[in-house]
Amino acid sequence: MNVNVPPPPAIEADRLTKRYGEAVAVDGISFALPAGTVTGLLGGNGAGKTTTIGMIMSLVAPTSGRVSVLGHDMARDAYRVLHRMNFESPYVDLPHRLTVRQNLSVFGRLYGVRNVSERIALLAADLDLKDFIDRASGKLSAGQKTRVALAKALINEPDVLILDEPTASLDPDTADWIRGHLERYRAKHNATILLASHNMAEVERLCDRVIMMKRGKIVDDDAPAKLLARYGRRNLEEVFLDVARGRSGAEKEAAE
């Protein structure tokens, strides 16, 4: 018997809910992200993006529902898949006094990278870290720190990469450079990328799909081009404002 079983989604959330007392941070959201896709998670402050990311990475325990990564339930089997994931956020730091090389070496060993020195040399070349590879991480500029954080996130060549505002506070040139690198990484490794960002141009450029959240719920979920068409807008920033101000795409379609 030859049955083609489709691979599990790279990330799957099923009625995922997180409550903090009376406050509902994430309210029964469901989505499935196929392998090799780049998905943007958009929403205003307090929409539930960071909590959702926290639950995907098993940093936050869901109140109900489940989340799985590469077919593994993160509440039960996180350690079966954590070595195939990684994460970058400007709100999480690397130890400041350690040099870039030392930090990458520590994380390389934590992730079980076989030839750590070789991998670091490759990342240093790819991400242009050579000039400051032996400098303390705390003494780097914002742009350099972001490149180092990205190097740490790529140290294990993850199948699933989760990025929380990867280009926040970067100048346009550095931000563009980072986006280009992410595009190349996805193409080369067929990696799945989930990206939370407030930068709509970035999301439009990188993402195949956009999930829009508001007050813990998913209020829209589609390809960027389809969202633009449905909302009758020229860019995602205008779509974002429509969503933030309570005008859904369906309402807009009905009105027209």
């Binding site: 990475m57 940093l59 999480v92 690397l94 400041h96 934590l110 079980g112």
Partner: peptide
């Protein structure tokens, strides 16, 4: 050093 989350999501 705000490094704990990096460790907690590592193996």
């Amino acid at each position: 050093s705000r490094n704990l989350a990096n460790l907690m999501i590592s193996p």
